[in-house]
Simulated assay, not measured.
Amino acid sequence: MKTKTLVILIIGVMLASCSATHILTNDNTQRYLPNETKNIEVFSTSKIDREYVIIGDVVSRVEDFNGANASVKYLKKEAAKIGADGIINLRLSIERGYIGNGVEAKGTAVKYIN
């Protein structure tokens, strides 16, 4: 019985992965209508072929068994909430946690200028 309970507990912890997201914006930043997550473009550089204004920085962290894709997914979700069209300067890193490692994604949310 104890073994069965332990196995269920371990599986529950693995399925209920932890994630955290943060948005850091300037108080003087103009507010934009939310965007759809699927429309957010992600770039690893700030040199893209469109003009843009910076809205703010976005950060997400997920447990590493979910992988970098999950961390970027949460990053795009947060950027969409503040009306971003894209994320530039994407940076991924492995962070140490209490239970295990996590993947942290950081980037700068931007709004395209026509």
Rank of each mutant, 00 (worst) to 15 (best):
I88H: 02
E95L: 14
K76F: 00
V62T: 04
V42G: 03
D57V: 02
I48W: 10
Y74H: 10
R61I: 13
G100Y: 10
K73T: 09
G97H: 06
A80F: 02
R91A: 08
D64Q: 12
V58A: 02
V53W: 05
D57Y: 03
K81V: 13
G97I: 12
F65A: 10
E63Y: 09
I88F: 09
E41I: 05
I87Y: 01
V72G: 01
K73E: 12
N39Y: 15
I99D: 05
I87F: 03
E41R: 13
E41G: 04
I40L: 11
V62F: 01
N89E: 06
D85H: 10
I94C: 08
I82W: 05
A79R: 03
R50K: 14
A70E: 06
D57G: 03
G97V: 11
E41C: 05
S93H: 10
E63N: 11
D64S: 14
A84N: 07
E36W: 13
D64I: 14
Y52H: 09
V58P: 01
A70H: 05
I94D: 11
I82V: 06
L75M: 05
D64E: 14
R50M: 10
E41N: 09
V53C: 10
I99L: 15
G56M: 06
I55N: 02
L90K: 04
I87M: 03
G97R: 07
E51H: 15
V59L: 08
G86K: 06
A68E: 05
V58W: 00
A80W: 04
I48E: 08
S71W: 00
R96G: 13
L92A: 04
K81T: 11
I82D: 04
K77R: 10
I87P: 00
S44F: 14
R50Y: 14
I99Y: 13
R50I: 11
G67M: 03
D57S: 09
V58R: 00
I55L: 05
G100F: 14
E63K: 09
I40W: 04
I87N: 00
N101Y: 15
I94W: 08
I88P: 02
N39P: 10
K47W: 09
I94V: 15
E36F: 15
R91Q: 08
E41F: 07
A70D: 01
